[in-house]
Design a protein around this nucleic acid. Structure first.
Length: 882
DNA sequence: CGAACCTTTGAGTTA
DNA sequence: CAAAGGTTCG
């Protein structure tokens, strides 16, 4: 049952609907038509227009429908005009989908929703309008990861830092992380800034930002971070947007990071009205003085208890611009606006904490968990009725996700039939797995199933190849979703680099990229020389090149081809006036010799590259001009070519979020791969829970059939490795699961595959496998069995008695802080989801480090003060209590 | 300068 | 095993 918050909303004045127009017509019809067919919770989420609203929308509960209907409602009630609604999504796909459905609902094209888009595209848009205020020009370039890394490499070189020891990629990752947390160079906690390059991390970040300004460029993170800076430093600009956006809608709120949160928060404050009596403005100030600093737990993995005071203050002051604590006077400018903590506007965030799978990208599940703190008086609406999956699938997914501790808790229910049970199939190796799935797909196809309704969802993209190979052999049409991005392909980036140099001569990174592509005899030596010149005179590389060809510093050959290149560019720039941008692109590709380069190339993929170039030119047609095209290309990452034909979809679990299919195949459910060992090592228990959410996302993509697979042998890093079935398989409720035999042929072990005794098979090879994950699994298994003695050793949990496939509430959830999760008295989370069996101050022994005391526990990761070896972080399976 | 060969390292998800 | 980076030779 939904329990709407009873808290009063802060005083948001009732807007009078505009007289006449759509609103009048809407009111004339009793109960607008678009509300028909919504369930009560959905309807509430649509019509609750005033004050902050959080919609907790489980998988398949009609989230997009609620969002679009809400917009339609706002419009037809006359509460706002299309350009007064800010609606943000994470992906372009989601934005497109919303536009499409909105158009269908309103019966017209939605050209008039200019502020419906991704965080990045909207951020970029606002930034372009006010570019000068953040030291950019409005035609700034958006850099991709590669450009970033190359730029950072240069900076590292300039600082004489060995980029072996301190790779540019790592720095890029750090900077990205800081930007995700909304930290400008000055705001990075000194301790953190020092971890890179012997304490030069912070300085490098600062000079990176400086260089970006000189290059007239921004990276992805800047699209938001610079936006925040813009708003903080220019209250009048902020007020302008606060005035404009009467309603804010946010999709996938569980995936927002701190920067996005800050950005939303700035925009969601009602502008301070200059003439308003102070008291009325301040009355809404329930805000943050009392909110404790957010722990940095999910920002810095493995730092729950020791969130250092520095970074806390940092977060506090940047998050809660309304009440910067003493000693953190940084955002004075921001305070000017936010200080009279104004009422929060009509912001509606939709999300599902159980589908938060982007922690590694800086997403803060906390944002959704703390929503009613951050937006006081928020109404929380739960959508729990699932319209997608059958009973068995939903029961399996719900039961799995119930093993997580950090969740708000929802109980999905369906009125659908039980349907087929979820299947689990084991095979000897990944090859057989692919064969088995291939056969099952062909069977489904023979049974008349549409290939578009079949998807294979993998944890890591390297798994895809095996399926591709198999499908090519079978002649089964397939489509890889979200593979290497179109714009990330070398040929596309080269072509874009040419266009970028034409558009923005100061774009050194683009110039450097193509100066010797195709080969023109302008190698490293020449480029180095141009760099020296450019740095000495503080001019762009292109200008430096222009100057250098006038001298005789270069060898005649290099000098000649450099001069040619410059003349080419001059000509192309001139042609911008007369030729359309698509023609220009063709001319450039042709005259630069770039097309020719690929035509001469004998390698297998050259033809594909030429196709891609044609595709690029074709896609330019949609845009007004070169500038517009370049703006968008940096943000548009989907390449959806040829979606028309029937084909099986192949993609990662991450890119499957938001999609649904009748039949879903989920291969690779093995320890180490899924859950990913690396996530476990890096993020401990939080990482495991995120992996489990990913499993939940995978299962809930399926409408009628969900089929899980695991292989006993898999090639990792080129060598065959033996694996054990994923713990997630053990966490499924047996009543909703069927164990089937591999249809891929030989089977394994002669016994016909995976069965109740699979662990016995596992043990036979166990001793040679020594990763921490395996050891832990072994230890956990022993522990679990001990507790469950006498029970059937099926591997699956046998506690479905009170967990009907209909998905009724699984009884009471009893949770004791230090023990395993218990559902109705049954021990379910024997291996996972709970704290370690070690606790603070335990005395332990480690093979290598000797004796010590536990000083910190984070899931299975312990920090131990060893008597001899000092403080170390170790995984709990490596130590024993003494 | 560039091609060819050799060595090393690394496969996790992405706006 | 594959890609990327480094080295050597023409």
């Amino acid at each position: 049952m939904t329990e709407p918050s009873k808290l009063p909303h802060p005083g948001v004045p009732e807007h009078q609907p505009a007289a006449g127009g759509i609103a009048a017509r809407a009111r004339a019809a009793a109960g607008p038509q678009y509300l028909a067919g919504l369930n009560p919770e959905q309807r509430e989420a649509v019509v609750t227009l005033d004050g902050p609203v959080l919609v907790l929308a489980g998988a398949g509960t009609g989230k997009t429908r609620v969002l679009t209907t809400r917009i339609a409602h706002i419009l037809s009630e006359g509460r706002a005009r299309p350009h007064e609604i800010l609606s943000v999504t994470f992906t372009n796909k989601a934005a497109r989908e919303m536009k499409l459905r909105l158009g269908q609902m309103l019966g017209q094209a939605v050209e008039g929703m200019p502020w419906l888009g991704t965080f990045h595209s909207i951020g970029g848009r606002i930034l372009r309008i006010h570019a000068e205020l953040v030291q950019l020009k409005s035609n700034f370039t958006v850099l991709d990861v590669d450009d970033q890394v190359r730029l950072l490499k240069q900076l590292l070189q300039a600082e004489n830092i060995d980029d072996k020891r301190w790779p540019a990629r790592m720095l890029a990752g750090l900077i990205d992380g800081w930007k995700n947390r909304g930290l400008t160079p000055a705001q990075v906690p000194p301790g953190e800034a020092a971890v890179f390059g012997n304490g030069k991390g912070g300085k490098l970040y600062a000079s990176y930002q400086e260089r970006l300004k000189i290059l007239n460029a921004a990276d992805f993170g800047d699209l938001l971070l610079e936006n925040i800076r813009l708003f903080r430093e220019n209250p009048d600009v902020l007020r302008q947007y606060q005035n404009r956006f009467k309603f804010i809608l946010v999709d996938e709120y569980q995936d927002t990071n701190v920067a996005q949160y800050l950005w939303l928060r700035l925009l969601s404050q009602a502008p301070a009205r200059p003439g308003a009596p102070l008291s009325s403005v301040i009355s809404g100030a329930t805000e943050p003085a009392d909110i404790p600093g957010r722990t940095t737990a999910s920002v810095i993995p493995g730092r729950v208890e020791d969130a250092n005071p520095e970074s806390r203050a940092e977060e506090d002051s940047s998050r809660d611009s309304g009440s910067a604590p003493a000693g953190a006077p940084r955002n004075d400018a921001g305070n000017a606006v936010a200080q009279p903590s104004s009422p929060l506007k009509n912001i509606c965030c939709v999300g599902d904490d159980d589908q938060s799978i982007y922690g590694w990208r800086g997403a803060e599940v906390d944002n959704i968990l703390r929503f009613d703190h951050d937006f006081p008086g928020a109404r929380v609406i739960r959508l729990e009725r699932n319209y997608r999956s059958t009973g068995h699938i939903l029961a399996a997914a719900s039961h799995l996700i119930a093993h997580n501790e950090g969740r708000l808790g929802k109980t999905l229910r369906t009125e659908d039939v039980d349907g087929e049970k979820v299947t689990v199939t084991g095979s000897w190796d990944s090859e057989e797995e692919a064969r088995a799935i291939g056969e099952e797909i062909e069977e489904l196809q023979r049974a008349g199933e549409n290939l578009n309704q079949i998807a294979i969802l993998v944890r890591a993209s390297f798994q895809m190849r095996e399926f591709e190979d198999r499908f090519v052999t079978l002649g089964l049409p397939y489509r890889v979703i979200g593979g290497p991005r179109f714009y990330e392909r070398a040929e596309i980036r080269d072509a874009l680099a040419y266009l970028r140099v034409i558009n923005s001569p100061a774009d050194d990174l683009a110039f450097e990229r193509i100066v010797n592509v195709p080969k023109r005899g302008l190698g490293d030596a020449t480029v180095q020389m141009l760099h020296d010149h450019a740095r000495k005179r503080r001019i762009p590389l292109f200008e430096a090149a222009r100057a250098v060809v006038e001298t005789d510093e270069l060898k005649p050959k290099a000098r000649g081809s450099l001069r040619d290149l410059i003349l080419h560019f001059d000509r192309w720039r001139a042609q911008r006036e007369v030729a359309s941008h698509t023609e220009l692109a063709e001319i450039v590709l042709d005259e630069s010799g770039y097309t020719e380069m690929w035509q001469k190339d004998r390698s297998a993929d050259a033809a594909g590259r030429l196709d891609n170039l044609k595709e690029l030119v074709r896609s330019m047609e949609e845009f007004e001009n070169l500038q517009g095209f370049l703006e968008h290309i940096s943000l548009v990452m989907d390449r959806d070519g040829g979606a028309a034909d029937e084909a099986v979809s192949l993609m990662t679990l991450h890119s499957a979020k938001g999609l649904e299919f009748e039949n879903v195949f989920l291969p690779g459910w093995e320890e180490g791969l899924f859950p990913s060992q690396r996530t476990l090592d890096e993020q401990g228990r939080a990482g495991l829970e995120e992996e489990r959410r990913l499993a939940h996302v995978g299962l809930t993509r399926a409408r009628r059939r969900a089929k899980l697979y695991f292989a006993t042998n898999r090639r990792i890093h080129g060598t065959w490795t033996t694996t054990i079935p994923s713990r997630f398989l053990d966490e499924l409720p047996a009543a909703n699961v069927e164990i089937t035999e591999s249809k891929g042929g030989s089977g394994w072990g002669g016994s016909g595959g995976y069965g109740p005794s699979r662990f016995d098979n596992v043990e036979s090879f166990g001793s040679s496998y020594t990763t921490p994950g395996w050891q832990r699994a072994q230890a956990n298994r022993a522990r679990g069995q001990g507790n469950r003695s006498g029970q059937a050793r099926g591997g699956f949990e046998e506690n479905q008695a009170h967990f009907s496939p209909r998905g009724e509430t699984p009884g009471g959830f009893a949770r004791n802080k230090r023990g395993p999760v218990v559902i109705e008295g049954e021990l379910v989370a024997k291996s996972t989801g709970t704290v370690s069996e070690f606790s603070l101050d335990d005395r332990v022994f480690h093979q290598k480090f000797g004796y010590g005391n536990v000083v910190k526990v984070d899931g299975n990761k312990l920090t131990i003060a060893f008597e001899k070896a000092g403080e170390k972080k170790v995984v709990d399976s490596f130590v024993e209590r003494v």
